[in-house]
Design a protein around this nucleic acid. Structure first.
Length: 816
RNA sequence: GCGGAUGUGGUGAAAUGGCAGACACGCUAGACUUAGGAUCUAGUGCCGUAAGGUGUGGAGGUUCAAGUCCUCUCAUCCGCACCA
């Protein structure tokens, strides 16, 4: 009975492959579970984060198969994206070759880890078949008005040579390469995700309980809904003249209409159209123009460092007081939020205050704290009581906000307005290795979409990748085509799509039966059966990007009539990072552990056991070589001690009352482990405690030698552990139980029944001693025994209170 | 600044308000031994020979009883951040 992970694991992996053990059934009358882990980018090799991710989903998938569910547990590759192109630049490999050979290698790794993925549903998002349906959806979305093209100031990563969506800019830098992002004025395609802003926000409540609170909060903040007042500042006569009457004013948005009487200037973004007009028409002094240009050109990080601005020598009229208000250009005003212009109330806004101080602008306080006087050395930004606000004096901020909005609406000079921080999702990328956006530019017809029958618009393979410019644009022939409408010579769109588009619907594609893959993206019947995903498992780093986009696509597909539910993922489990020496594993830090090396040395079961045992799934996992050894030793013991089992086709029946104390204890521990396992799989997901329970049971089994109890113990323990360490458990199960124990197990309550129980005795809440009493002993008897046992501490004291907690402890409260 | 999380032995971590430290790693001692990074046995929060004391970041509070509930506070981590 020597344990050899290599031999045993290979043998079972082949058995599973031969028997198609993990292919879902197409019998839609069965109860189902859809277990999904976030699919990987095919970077070349799996890392420990992947192993953790897929070990978790595999444990769920295997557990539910045991429970008789029809389980969909698919995997694929998010295979478009820049690393393929970067590798091409570096090694001269073709992105396609590089990608697909990586995929082949990683599939081998999946197999050697024993993951129970459906082999027949494996896909790569760079497959032409996937692109075909995706482009079809893009056309649908365009027709629905959910995709549009416009010119705008975009986040541009000078290192990746491409634009980035808002969500992809982290702290002013590129999410992928950390390069500081600059703003660039160019055309690009957008998904109208803002159309769903309200629903994306309100449906978060449907996910409560199923999703981590943290993720819900992050999404809520990202969507950033705020209520306020929008009104228009009108220019005075002189300013109108200076602007050749081109603009009569500009809109501003505020969430603090209660501070309206404190306005002392207006600030507009350097990118504002009024500013652009003044520059183009030479209406500004050179020095002013230069200052504005330098604000515009600053990187977003630079721009956040210090507030700066310049007066435009324009004035607007305060909508209520009719006083003249100067207009400034300010670098802290964002063009892409609200209307790109604000009313500035330095007394009650920190940013406005800082700016006013720097440029010596007036500060008018109009709100004071409820119970104290104003402090004019800093901005008072909380709510308070209004003063110097004409008829609104004495109101509190909250009431005043409503009243002032009402007042504006009555005068028809402003409206209540809801603003979102969420912006439309810019999806075009100026790169080769992505799905082409299926549009054509025609001189006569303008922007025309491709016909669905021409899909997919596939990438050309003869491509030169240098890292400069867009390879599709530079390709000699690819972009030349005929206009789908008028058949004249036209040009293809050479931008490709953000790879987050592929991951926004892959979970739907997995529902499709592979035999229909050629004909349809998915069928309604299949979707209705499999969706939504019961357990979705992946990294917290996707809390905003991927999960928000996938939710958006789900709502779009619903409105396109393809599906009929609102949210794709019922339950989300966000796993913690895998660390080594206290830091995230990374090549640059040289602290990586290669999964292949672990499998080679100890086997897949050891890797899986360690990963689930070392920490609860949501917590960070510190890699520890000697703890891995420990996991290995446990498996070895588990395997070798199975020689104590007698072969059986059913769980042995045992007369509990006739057993010795050790034997009864062993049974109790086994069934305790089972109860715990059921809790863990169904709600707690703390596999570490489940495994600890199994270890306790093993220790208890080992303290006795009754063969029937060993058999019963393994019947249950091998079943509990199969989702975690499937190879060794399958081996034991097939050798002794003909695989019949790998099903749901019944808890035998009788093993928990005890005649004599141990109670703790504490004095004044401090644990002192223990007593053994009959399980049905009365409280009086229990107290009596407790007093005898604790006599030593009671001498010369008065007992003032006696508490008996049934089956737990006795607490005696004493005083001198 | 705003939002969220976490804080327990040498380490990873357990504990429906009911005997803190389960389980494991490590360490110590011992056994066996073909001397091995194997296996087995015992021990292991801290102080103390012991009795006992003490102990879950810190300070208060509620309770017969608090790691757990409440208030304040400190530290670390994560997310967002000039969002008007």
């Amino acid at each position: 009975m020597e344990y050899s992970s290599k031999k045993l694991e290979k043998q079972w992996q082949e058995y599973w492959a031969k028997n198609r053990s993990f292919e879902p059934s197409e019998d839609f009358t069965k109860k189902k579970k859809y277990i999904l882990s976030m699919f990987p980018f095919p970077s070349g090799r799996l890392h420990m984060g992947h192993v953790r991710n897929y070990t978790l989903s595999d444990a769920f998938a295997r557990y539910y198969r045991q429970q008789g569910f029809n389980v969909l547990h698919p995997i694929g590759f998010d295979s478009f994206g820049m690393p393929a192109e970067n590798a091409a630049i570096k090694n001269g490999s073709h992105p396609k070759t590089w990608t697909y050979s990586n995929i082949d290698y990683m599939k081998g790794e999946f197999k050697s880890l024993g993951f129970s993925f459906s082999k027949e549903r494996e896909l790569a998002t760079s497959d032409e078949l996937y692109t075909k349906f995706e482009q079809g959806f893009i056309i649908d979305m365009y027709e629905k008005g959910l995709l549009y093209r416009k010119k705008g100031f975009l986040n541009w990563c000078p290192s990746c040579n491409t634009v980035l969506a808002n969500e992809q800019v982290i702290d002013g830098t590129c999410w992928r390469c950390d390069t500081s992002v600059v703003k660039k004025d160019m055309n690009q395609y957008y998904f109208k995700i803002t159309h769903y802003g309200d629903e994306l926000l309100s449906d978060l409540s449907k996910l409560e309980g199923g999703w981590p609170k943290q993720v819900l909060t992050m999404q809520e903040n990202w969507i950033g809904k705020s209520n306020g007042l929008e009104f228009r500042f009108s220019f005075d006569e002189v300013s109108l003249g200076r602007l050749n009457s081109k603009f009569d004013g500009f809109d501003v948005f505020t969430t603090r209409p209660d501070t309206i009487y404190g306005v002392s200037y207006a600030a507009i973004a350097p990118e504002h159209e009024i500013v652009s007009y003044m520059i183009q028409n030479s209406l500004l002094d050179d020095s002013v123009r230069e200052q504005i240009e330098s604000m515009k050109n600053a990187s977003s990080i630079e721009r956040q460092k210090e507030k700066s601005g310049v007066a435009l020598n324009l004035h607007v009229v305060h909508p209520l007081t009719k006083k003249s208000v100067p207009v400034w250009v300010a670098n802290f005003v964002l063009m892409d939020y609200g209307s790109g212009a604000v009313m500035a109330v330095p007394a009650h806004d920190e940013r406005d205050f800082d700016f006013a101080q720097k440029y010596d602008l007036p500060i008018h306080a109009v709100i004071k704290p409820f119970n104290s006087e104003s402090d004019d050395t800093k901005a008072f930004t909380e709510i308070g009581e209004l003063f110097s606000s004409e008829s609104f004096n004495g109101l509190n901020s909250k009431d005043a906000q409503a009243k002032i909005i009402e007042h504006f609406e009555m005068l028809k000079i402003g409206t209540k307005k809801i603003n979102f921080k969420l912006k439309d999702w810019g999806v075009s990328r100026q790169r080769y290795w992505g799905a082409p956006i299926p549009f054509v530019h025609c001189d006569d017809c303008g922007l025309v979409m491709e016909k669905k029958e021409n899909l997919p618009i596939a990438l050309p393979e003869d491509i030169v990748i240098t890292g400069e410019g867009n390879p599709l644009d530079k390709h000699p022939t690819w972009k030349h085509c005929k206009c789908p409408t008028c058949a004249k010579d036209a040009l293809r769109e050479t931008d490709t799509m953000d790879t987050f588009v592929e991951s926004s619907w892959y979970f739907l594609r997995f529902c499709a039966s592979p035999k229909n893959w050629e004909d349809e993206a998915f069928s309604r019947e299949q979707i209705e059966y499999w969706m939504s995903v019961d357990h979705y498992i992946g990294g917290i780093e996707h809390a905003i990007l991927h999960l928000l986009y996938a939710r958006f696509f789900t709502k779009v597909f619903r409105d396109l009539g393809y599906i009929s539910f609102d949210e794709p993922f019922d339950r989300l489990l966000t796993q913690g990072m895998v660390l080594k020496d206290g830091a995230k594993m990374s090549k640059s830090k040289g602290n990586t552990v290669d999964p292949d090396a672990i499998i080679e040395k100890y086997g897949a079961d050891t890797a899986r056991l360690f990963i689930l045992f070392a920490a609860p799934p949501t917590q960070e996992l510190e890699w520890n070589d000697s703890a891995v050894e420990g996991a290995y030793r446990f498996i070895k013991r588990f395997y070798e001690r199975s020689s104590n089992i007698t072969k059986t086709e059913s769980i042995p029946s045992i007369d509990h009352a006739s057993l010795s104390k050790e034997e009864q204890f062993a049974r109790k521990k086994v069934y305790e482990a089972l109860v715990r396992a059921q809790d863990v799989y169904n709600e707690k997901y703390t596999f570490n405690t489940m495994i600890a329970g199994v270890m306790e049971a093993m220790n208890a089994l080992n303290a006795q030698s009754n063969s029937a109890i060993w058999s019963e113990g393994y019947w249950i323990l091998a079943s509990i552990m199969e989702p975690v360490i499937p190879h060794v458990c399958s081996e034991i199960s097939s050798r002794y139980f003909s695989l019949k124990n790998l099903t749901s197990q019944r808890v035998l309550e009788e093993v928990f029944v005890e005649n004599v129980i141990t109670l703790g005795v504490s004095i004044n809440g401090k644990a002192r001693t223990e007593i053994e009493v009959a399980v049905d002993a009365s409280s009086e008897d229990v107290i009596k025994i407790a007093k005898e046992s604790a006599a030593k501490w009671l001498e010369g004291k008065t007992i003032v209170k006696e508490i008996v907690v049934p089956k737990k402890l006795v607490n005696l409260v004493i005083k001198d």
